[in-house]
Amino acid sequence: MDALVVSGSPHVHADQSVKKVMYGVVYAMIPAMLVSIYFFGLGAVRVLLVSVIACMAVEYIIQKYLIRSEVTIFDGSAIITGVLLAFNVPGNLPTLILVIGAIVAIGVGKMSFGGLGKNVFNPALVGRVFLLISFPVQMTTWPVPKPLFAAAITDAITGPTPLGILKEGLAAGKTVQELMPQLPDYVGNLMTGYQGGCIGEVSALALIIGAAYMLIRRIITWHVPVSYLLSVVIFSGILWLSDPTMYVDPLFHLVTGGMMLGIFYMATDMVSSPMSPKGQIIFGAGCGIITILIRVFGAYPEGVSFAILIMNAFVPLIDRAFKPVRFGETVKR
């Protein structure tokens, strides 16, 4: 018999690990990956591979040579950042730009704060927003979705996103009703993915399937997605009811752009979201309101990334202000 092990209780543990949690998120993104490959062909494959490999390589180089710590590139977190970054760029983005995005995402967004668990902002979004501001042309030139392996993406046939069409149209003084014919049928096409945009944003349905998987596996809780969804619906609904010619209906907001991706995969990122259920609800609601503010009143057609980053910055405050309900605090008899 070996020496007995002595430790404090508990002596049994839930069969969980950081790796399992992280790879659970990766598995949840597989449906969306498949859909993006279906619609954007080899371009999507290239973007996904380059992004994931670049993120892992950057993390490896930083951990091995800069901070000389243990190398943890296979814990899954770098893969998530890579996939999310790829989901957030157009399918024809040049490789070099994508690599720059990966360097910013991992280097600035994650490792500069101390690595996994310590980053204030969602690393993928940091990379995405950096690219959006630095390379606006490349980042907003969308390839037209084509069925699998059709033509090479370099054809430079570009189509605007539904949100872009709407924003420019409204700015030009047209009403929503006039613009509707130009927009895809969102209930059918938008759900399944036939819309222009970043590769991961195209199919709301695939994203929801992955989200359901994460909810069932209890990787994420319902608090952030539900409060985000509700606040978007309520806020955009109020605007829509006040003037249907100027504002689109809430369903359009929900299924277009990066909304589903943001709600289920980026706002729920556990590292950069609040810890307590109450805080998560506040966080989700804040994200929703800021998103609609940017979409409706801001200069950019899309506001999900900015909204989540802004709310990320408030997380330490939210954590301090919204504590869980302590047992025995409310004395009632």
Binding site: D2, A3, L4, V5, V6, S7, G8
Partner: peptide, 20 residues
């Protein structure tokens, strides 16, 4: 005689048992 596992602080180990 035994192997300790847990938070690496003497203070905790001291409260737990006599020592390895």
């Amino acid at each position: 005689k035994v192997a300790f596992e847990g938070a690496t602080t003497c203070y905790f180990a001291h409260s737990l048992f006599a020592g390895e």
